[in-house]
Each structure stands twice: as C-alpha cells, then as structure tokens.
C-alpha cells in the first residue's frame, strides 16, 4: 500500500465565526501534481495553508478534524520542521531584497544547516533545478529584485527547494506572470514532479488540466469532487463541477 503525502479527514476550519472549510476529506498522492480549482474565495488558499500550518499565524483560526502529513498527524510534528518539509510558493513572486545567493540560502541560514561549501553547492543545485543557473551563475551577488517576474518566481521556487522539502505547495504561482512565463513555470513543475509532491492552487482551469494528474474542485468551503484530472474534466460526477468547468460560474 502506498503512503499518501497528505491526508485529511473531516477537516473544518473557522476564521472566528466564519466556516471557511467544511468537512474536507482528501488524500494527496506522493510524487504527483495535484491541483485544487474553484472560484475565488472558495477556500483553496485556506486549505493549502493548513498543510504547512500557515493559518496558525492568523489570530482566531480554529481547526477540527484530522490531517496527516507524510504519515504523521499534523499537530504532532514540530512546526518548524514541518515547514521545512513542506515548502510554499506564493502568488506574487516575493524575493527578499537581498542578492540572489542570499535569497536561496535564506532557509539554510535559518536552520543553520550546511557549511559554506554545502550552502554554495545547494544554491547551485537549486538554481540548476529551476533552470536559472546558466543565466545567473555570474550574477549571484546582484539584487534579486532586478530579475524579471518569471525569474523571480523561479528564484522563489528555488528558495523553497533549498531546505529540501518533500512537498511543495503552490498558491496560484503564475497569476502574476504573462502567458509565456506561465508556460515556462508549468514546464518547470513537470521537471520537479518526479522528486516532489506538488499541490497547486489555481483559478485557471486550463492550467489545472495541463499540469495536474489529480484535481479537486472546491466551492464555498466544500471539496465537491476529487479525482483524476482527466476524469474530472471529461466526466465530472457532480453537477456543480460540471457547471463550473463549463464556465457557468466565474
């Protein structure tokens, strides 16, 4: 039997009184790309942020139900270790106003891992992994903010990879990028798929169809349907899924 990367059973999340996730149960398979789609405000980001406990930073959040990451109950894992295992890429490219090298070394510096040559090696490996090494290897000391949007987002992915996570959470990683850059990031995701479990949130159905093997559709805090992406797009089991993919709500 294969161990799922993330499982949740009957997960509920409240922002104060607001019931943002309603009895969500899902299993996310390892070393695959899983996409979560749904209209804006349906709880996609909230669900994603459960998996690395980023919601803990928001006052008034309450969670019920069971969530396991890599076979361990979410709350049993040391939160700092969890965040090292579960990397996150945000909606807008958000490098620190540091140089390229320091951006990628950031996580290693936080955890105090690696001596100088190991850090250098990891930076090279991560930059190579996201296809930036050839372009940037002579410019490691230049400011990350001088890069293009696409390069910045690649850099942010590299930064998340530098702490050697097993799971990569991506919250609409292409929504601030143009179509060509989007295509490049999607290719990159395909390259990373063999080594990482990737969960991507997107409101772009075409993107979900292009990149993911499994797909979940959310609506108003509920996970309406979850299954193989091809099946979900060609033969949805739920009427609401069908309405959404045929463009009946925004």
């Amino acid at each position: 039997m294969r161990m799922d990367s993330i499982t949740c059973t009957d997960l509920n999340l409240f922002y104060g009184d607001f019931h943002a996730l309603k009895s969500v149960s899902v299993s996310i398979a390892p070393k695959r790309i899983t996409s979560i789609i749904g209209p804006s405000g349906c709880g996609k980001s909230t669900l994603l942020r459960v998996f690395n406990r980023m919601n803990d930073l928001i006052p008034g959040v309450r969670i019920t139900g069971d969530v396991s990451v890599l076979g361990r109950p979410l709350l049993d894992e040391d939160i700092l270790k969890l965040r090292r295992t579960v990397g996150m890429v945000f909606q807008r490219p958000n490098p620190f106003p540091l140089n390229i090298f320091e951006n990628i070394a950031y996580g290693m510096r936080i955890h105090g891992i690696g001596n100088r040559s190991q850090v250098e090696e990891t930076v090279e490996k991560c930059l190579t992994g996201v296809g930036l090494w050839e372009d940037l290897k002579d410019k490691l000391k230049t400011g990350a903010l001088s890069l293009s949007g696409e390069q910045q987002q690649r850099l942010c992915i590299a930064r998340a990879l530098a702490t050697k996570p097993e799971i990569l959470l991506m919250d609409e990683p292409c929504s601030a990028l143009d179509p060509i850059a989007t295509a490049h990031i999607e290719e990159l995701m395909q390259d990373l798929r063999s080594e990482y479990t990737i969960v991507i949130v997107t409101h772009n159905m075409q993107q979900a169809a292009r990149v993911s093997e499994d797909c979940g559709f959310m609506l108003l805090g509920e996970l309406i349907e979850f299954g193989k992406t091809t099946q979900l797009f060609t033969a949805p089991r739920d009427e609401r899924t069908e309405d959404y993919i045929s463009g009946r709500y925004g």
């Binding site: 980023m54 930073l57 700092l80 965040r83 958000n94 942010c156 998340a160």
Partner: peptide, 27 residues
C-alpha cells in the same frame, strides 16, 4: 515592512524571533 516577508520567512521554518531579526528588522 511588507507582510509577505514575514510569511515567506515563516514558511521556510523561521521562528517568530527569526522572523523579527531576519525578515523585519533589516528592512
């Protein structure tokens, strides 16, 4: 200081104090 610096640092496993010293104070 932009919120997202704090979020990124936290998502990489920084403690609150590390968030302060590495993602807030420098800026």
């Amino acid at each position: 200081v932009p919120r997202n610096y704090r979020d990124v640092a936290a998502s990489l496993g920084a403690t609150r104090w590390q968030v302060v010293t590495r993602a807030v104070l420098p800026y």
